[in-house]
Design a protein around this nucleic acid. Structure first.
Length: 379
DNA sequence: CGACGGGACGC
DNA sequence: CGACGGGACGC
């Protein structure tokens, strides 16, 4: 139940044509348009071998769309010379349950004729397909200097608009895309946004110039830094991969490399407690033992409301002997209150579980796992 | 936007 | 803390 979001219906070609006919006038924000697909200068006529006028990059493609479907769609405009959907590497590796070859959501379409490429931009850019609005623009000549040019900006005033954001950054270079994140429910700005520049050095310039500065009319400084690269994936261990990744036959695991561990980590343990592996659970001496004195009680925080006991068994079982698990629920709703407890027999195994599972991305939540503290109601 | 339960020995 | 429509340069 935790990872159903990937299930979408494959797109039929007939549906696509249909969509094409009825929605080819889909609105695209002016901002996106000025996002810089048109080069500022004169280089229009370099057609032959310089900047290609036939090669398009298509972004925000629906996950399920295949290269063949893309080609079919774009062939409705004119003759397509080549078409490539970019997919992630077919890593046969263990951890990534993301089956090899998933679409990365963008691709390239190269037309025979520049006029068709232009027509494709005019008619297909902004086309809505499934849950996505695709973007069609001229591909820039591929080169190293355009990579890693995406910035993450936080601390923005809630009133700052996308246009304001672009104005703020436009002096640093050519903006390819910009975005401000809004809360889905309230519609209010999250004070966080992205700017993708044409060139990486433009992005560096923007960091130099704007990081820590206070926008006009604002009171707080903004943070400008490089956005996380898509490869440093946040939910590298997809929800249901747990059972398979944390194979029950393996009692001890090497350190699990959490995506951005440092940031999410929060360990209540002091190094002194970690020193020895020969500690025995004792009912009174240390603050982190289970009440009963037999076993080590672990506090697990940031569980989803639907969480059930079996999730905890699956999470902790691979690390050793688990005596009991408990999901704490609200009495009324019977929904998990966001935390639970796991009691393990052996200190070493409990420690290993904590070290491995603290910071672990379970679905869209990052777990915080530590020895239970003693809320001394009584002594 | 959020943080540590529930049970009940029979002295 | 904060991370996008998951994924903008050929995976």
């Amino acid at each position: 139940m935790m990872s159903l979001k990937k299930i979408t219906q494959p797109l039929e070609l007939s549906q696509m044509d249909h969509a094409l006919i009825h929605q080819h006038h889909a609105q695209v924000s002016a901002l996106h348009q000025n996002g810089g697909t048109t080069s500022p200068g004169s280089t229009e006529s370099l057609g032959d071998d310089g900047c290609s006028k036939t090669n398009l990059i298509v972004n925000y493609l629906p996950q399920t769309m295949t290269q063949e479907e893309i080609k079919a769609l774009f062939s409705s405009i004119g003759e397509v010379e080549s078409c490539k959907l970019i997919r992630d590497k077919p890593t046969g590796l263990t951890a990534s349950t993301t089956v090899s070859g998933q679409s990365l959501g963008y691709g390239f379409v190269n037309y025979k004729n520049p006029s068709d490429a232009e027509k494709a931009i005019n008619t297909l850019n902004g086309l809505r397909l499934q849950n996505k609005t695709i973007k069609v623009s001229l591909a820039r000549p591929s080169c190293e200097s355009i990579k890693g040019a995406n910035l993450y900006i936080s601390g923005l005033p809630k009133s700052l608009t996308q246009l304001d954001l672009e104005k703020l950054f436009s002096s640093c270079g050519q903006i390819i895309t910009s975005r401000i994140l809004y809360d889905q429910n309230t519609g209010l700005s999250k004070g966080v946004g992205f700017i993708r520049f044409d060139q990486r050095n433009e992005a560096e310039r923007a960091i130099q110039k704007l990081n820590g500065t206070i926008p006009e009319g604002a009171t707080e400084p903004i943070t400008v830094k490089f956005a996380n690269s898509p490869s440093s994936n946040k939910n590298a261990l997809p929800t249901l991969a747990l059972a398979s990744y944390l194979s029950p036959t393996r009692r001890f695991l090497g350190p699990i490399h959490h995506p951005s561990s440092g940031r999410f980590r929060y360990s209540p343990l002091e190094s002194s407690l970690l020193g020895s592996t020969t500690l025995l659970p004792s009912s009174t001496a240390t603050p982190n033992t289970a009440i009963s004195g037999a076993g080590w009680c672990i506090f697990v925080y940031n569980l989803a409301p639907e969480t059930e006991e079996n999730v905890l068994w699956q999470l902790f079982g691979p690390f050793g002997a688990v005596q009991s698990v408990k999901v704490i629920r609200d009495f009324q709703t019977q929904k998990c209150k966001g935390f639970g407890f796991v009691t393990m027999t052996n200190y070493d195994e409990a420690l290993m579980a904590i070290q491995s599972l603290n910071g672990f991305a379970l679905g869209n939540r990052v777990l915080q796992v530590s020895f239970k503290t003693n809320k001394m109601k009584m002594m």
